[in-house]
Design a protein around this nucleic acid. Sequence first.
DNA 1: GCCAGCCGAAGAATCCTTTCTGCATCGCTG
DNA 2: CAGCGATGCAGAAAGGATTCTTCGGCTGGC
Lengths: 385, 385
Amino acid sequence: MTAAKHQVRRAAREQSGRRPGGRAGIRDVAAAAGVSITTVSDALNGKGRLPDTTRRHVRSVADRLGYRPSAAARALRTGKSGLIGLTVTTYGEEPFTFTEFAYFAEMARAATSAALARGYALVILPATSQHDVWSNVALDGTVVVDPSDQDPVVSELVRQGIPVVSDGRPAGNLPVTAWVDNDHEAAVTHLLDHFAASGARRIGLLTGTGTDTYTRLSTAAYLAWCARVGQDPVYEAYPAHDPCAGAVAADRLLARPDRPDAVYGLYDPNGTDLLAAARRYGLRVPDDLLVICCSESTVYATTEPPVTTLSLKPGRIGTTVIQLLIDAIEGSPESRSALLSATAATTAAEGGRVMPTELIVRASSQRRSRSVTVNPPRRPQAADQ
Amino acid sequence: MTAAKHQVRRAAREQSGRRPGGRAGIRDVAAAAGVSITTVSDALNGKGRLPDTTRRHVRSVADRLGYRPSAAARALRTGKSGLIGLTVTTYGEEPFTFTEFAYFAEMARAATSAALARGYALVILPATSQHDVWSNVALDGTVVVDPSDQDPVVSELVRQGIPVVSDGRPAGNLPVTAWVDNDHEAAVTHLLDHFAASGARRIGLLTGTGTDTYTRLSTAAYLAWCARVGQDPVYEAYPAHDPCAGAVAADRLLARPDRPDAVYGLYDPNGTDLLAAARRYGLRVPDDLLVICCSESTVYATTEPPVTTLSLKPGRIGTTVIQLLIDAIEGSPESRSALLSATAATTAAEGGRVMPTELIVRASSQRRSRSVTVNPPRRPQAADQ
DNA sequence: GCCAGCCGAAGAATCCTTTCTGCATCGCTG
DNA sequence: CAGCGATGCAGAAAGGATTCTTCGGCTGGC
């Protein structure tokens, strides 16, 4: 009979003291310590009302047996897995983008640290992936990097009640829980002012054909600045995900009849692209051409000449994103008030937080002196903290 | 009474058709479809003996209800979570290393893709982290990048019966399931031969003070090559995890009385470090100094001059590591035979697989021509495939 | 001396899915 | 027509930890 068989199996397990699987379970600890399962759970988790003697005893027995609670069982029972999804946009089949390597690496590094400090781990999940992969892993929340307009993954997650925080303002009206972004308008405006202060008369822009918010906002800020100071815009746009197109676009920009005497490149490789193009046209940097690009790469400190860069401080972004997300997951009361106050202080959007950028001034953007100086972090007037 | 209370709750749930929690469970699907829980499970998983009509009906009902099986419950029942740990070595508090950004990013990207293609997701877990984080997530297997001598995490995982595959030969006698590495000796030897063919008379080395296998093997290969051709070794070692120390070491190397006329730098930033140092000493590259460094960064294609790099092909490493790991997890019979044959073909070590490197020849290592050429991938004689 | 109340700990339900086992029913063959 | 195999599906037992509820025993107050 079935019942009989089960009884036999259970009896065998209780005798052996170890489950047939090999690893010790909470039952084994309870039996070895001479207490109940409840007591073991309470002792190990610091709950319940137990005298310290019992607690210590149970802990020592658990240690001796090498007991590790089953993460799957705990997740099932408590409904929390301690896992946070890190969603990255994809071009083609491959996760990550070429143009944002350094940014993403630094962002992910900081996010990993921040999550770990609060007991969470990060799961890498490309946005374009089968649904089954997404539902195969229990997530407490998700970070989305640069979500596209009507991201189906985000909608699905929100529908399931899973908090979603995005790096980058959500396009369209994506229902994210919160978002973090740089103040791109302020950054570009400040940078163009810096160019002008260095004597630039006609400032060019190397931008992208993509519709992501970063590209949109930065380009808009450039156009607005041009309109304000009365300069004709001079720019070239290229598909940013193509690793070769940047060099070509830089070349086109310097080949124009209305050649700019200063160029800002929106993407990481644009600095070297522009230096190479300048060499081809016999232009000296910074004497004939001022150059700045947005990059997190340290190579620009040692190029010839060193290139001024705009850093988006991805580390701070990653840390903040994780903090907001975990606050939302744990429903901390602090999170709500913090979010609200940040909202009030920065923008009318809900749950948004704007972070300052940093202009790292090097030789390529200064006509007078070639000495390397570093500006103090710039904070947009609207940012909190 | 308790029993009565429970009965009431259960009855309420069965009436509502939806669990109070909000999301639909398998019970709800079964009730809505008018079949049993078993039938739902079998229909959705393609198991059991069911006519296609039933299968389709159940699937349509599940879709309509937006049913997603609970990953936690499935993991608990099946014992497989579909999660693979990606362990990264840490310096100080922060995960990832500064000197290996590009390598690690590319490796992780490829590993993520490869894992996803086989239905697994990657969890980022720094090696130095509390045990509780490790036991809080159910892992089917783990990838370890450059494990240190007596890595306690690896031992613990192996003790628990979790497969571990390492990127880099395990130091000491760490009991990993398998490992993947480049043929560093062959790579360095080939590279030094290339230097010599370009006319180098005294080749220097920029190496690290670390004890990791990469540094050890590469340095040993350099020393062996020097001994073979009768050249006095000329090298500087510095702590590779310090982002500034490389520039200083490059400077020291070129300041020596027995200044080399060619230098190989083991770490990613060494190319720019050496170019900058050469400028300071008025040395022209490649006329007065030949330069090669080991790097995955694309910036060396556009430096002045472009720098020859040794690529470890991290993408191939990442893919292979994941394949070996998943084969081990799923106990595929193919894995065992493949492993054995690879072992026989390459080295006496167990479960090791050696991958070819690629020398990307650019202007900095050729005295005659400045034209950019790319060597075909070099395959060490021992490598399979 | 008795009872209220607290302390320490055990029992059992619960989380949700997979899967083993087994019961009907139907058609077919001998 | 009886018996037998195949088919379609249901019941219920894991799987391992958390936690709500309960219960016995001991102490202190009156």
